[in-house]
Structures are given as structure tokens and as C-alpha cells.
Amino acid sequence: MGSLVTTVLVVSGLGALLALLLFVVAKQFKVEEDPRIDEVEKMLPGANCGGCGFAGCRAMSEALVKREDISALYCPVGGAECMKSVATYLGKAATEQEPKVAVVRCGGSCEMRPKTNRFDGAPSCLVASSLYAGDTGCSFGCLGLGDCVAKCEFDALHINPATGLPEVDEEKCTACGACVKACPKMIIELRKKAPKGRKVYVSCVNKAKGAVARKACKVACIGCGKCAKVCPFDAITVENNLAYIDYTKCKMCRKCVVECPTGAIVEVGFPARKEAPATESQTTAKTE
């Protein structure tokens, strides 16, 4: 009996002593922090994707709380709504940015862009691109090894086994930009998100001369400039044998799509046209 009592006493005494120690240490070393940082962090999506340019949501919250002017800070994942609520809470002016979505600018599927050699190294676009131009005649296009897919935190990118190209799931894409940074060929671009997932864009990044580009890939942009001529809004520029549609100017009239002789300009999310233009197979392949 006596030993039992001693045991209980010793153990509880030890417990109390350690609790006291913990309490003292916690008091002594407490880091004073603006409590608003915690609150702001709760408002952010918590994906820690780095889309804002900071290491994670915590770092972003600190910046949001500490900086006077937060117009340069934007969370692409939370979007305008999230930024607005944060700004209201902090009593600062919110930034407005149009919602965006990642777009893969390469249409060189296996069928359009035949393979000319076989890559046999570590399965990474970065490894392949540092080694050589790619396993097709096109030295600019998608390598299809999926660095973008690996970097996507939101499960929004997948390689389509039929085309060998990554496809973006618009529902899941938060435009964090991780894939844009991951792609060594700089094929992925963040473009304006339109209703019904509609987009019109040049699905090619080939800067080679027309004949060279065409030889490598059937749907390459050959830099002919017809699209730029037909565009009523002055949205298309052709530089280095490559057309680019400025999404801030484009009104999606789709005249360029019809005009493009190779089908490099792609329309997505529009109802089918009556008389099937040459680009039809492309359009369906690209529509999710």
C-alpha cells in the first residue's frame, strides 16, 4: 500500500513539475505576432501552391498584413472573391484580376507530328529539353513527359494518351502558374477565362520558318500572317514566324480560325459550325 502511494505521489509530482516547466517556457519564448495574420491565412485557400509568388499561404498572409499597398498581391487560386474578403478584413484596397486558366499551346499530337526518334532517359521534360530538341521534327513543341502534370497541385492537368499532350481541366485549374514555370519549352500560358470555357488561341509555339515548321507538324503555325490581316480588332501579331493572339484584345469573332491554313488557331467551347471547316478535327480533339 505504502509503495502505491509513493508511486502515485512521485508520478503526479513529476507531472506537475513538467507542466509548470512547459508553462514557463511557453510564456518566456512566446513570439508576438499580429493575430490578423492567422485570420488572413484562414481566408486564403491553403493550397500552398506558390501561385502568388510567395513560398506558401502563410508568407502571403504576412505580406498582406504588413504591406500598406496590397495591389501587387494576388491569390489566383482564391480569386477576386477571396482577395476582396481579405481586403475588407484588413481595410485595404483589393486588387481585381480577371480569372485566368492555363492553356497548352501545342497541337502536335502523335498523328499531326510524327515521332522521329525515341527518348530514353529520366522521364522528365527538363531532362529531355536540356538534352535535345525533342522526339519529333519540331524543336519547340510539347515533349509530353508531363513535368506540368507533376507540378500541378490541383489535379487539373493530365496527359491524354491518345494525343500525348497535356490537357487542362478548366474546372480544377486555379491558374496558379506552376505548370507555366515547370514547362521548359514555355508552351503553357495563362489566358483569360471566358464563360463556357470558350477560347481562341494559337495552339503552336514553333518559331521556325513556315516550310520547316510545316514539315515537322501538320498543325504548326507557319507565320503566314493571314490571321493578322483578317483580325478586325488588331489582336494578332506575327513575330519570328509565329502568330500570337492578345487575349485582352480578342473578341472571339473566330475569323482567324477559319482563315488559318494549317489549323494552328484553335477555338474551344463554341457550338459546332454548320459547314465543317478544315479545323474541325482539331476543335473536337481540344474540347473537353
Binding site: Y132, A133, G137, S139, A208, K209, V212
Partner: peptide
């Protein structure tokens, strides 16, 4: 002009 090198880069 630009021509493809041994690794296919122009």
C-alpha cells in the same frame, strides 16, 4: 540561316 544541329535545335 538557322539550321538544325545534331540535337535538332536550330
Amino acid at each position: 540561316d538557322m539550321t538544325a544541329d545534331a540535337q535538332g535545335n536550330l
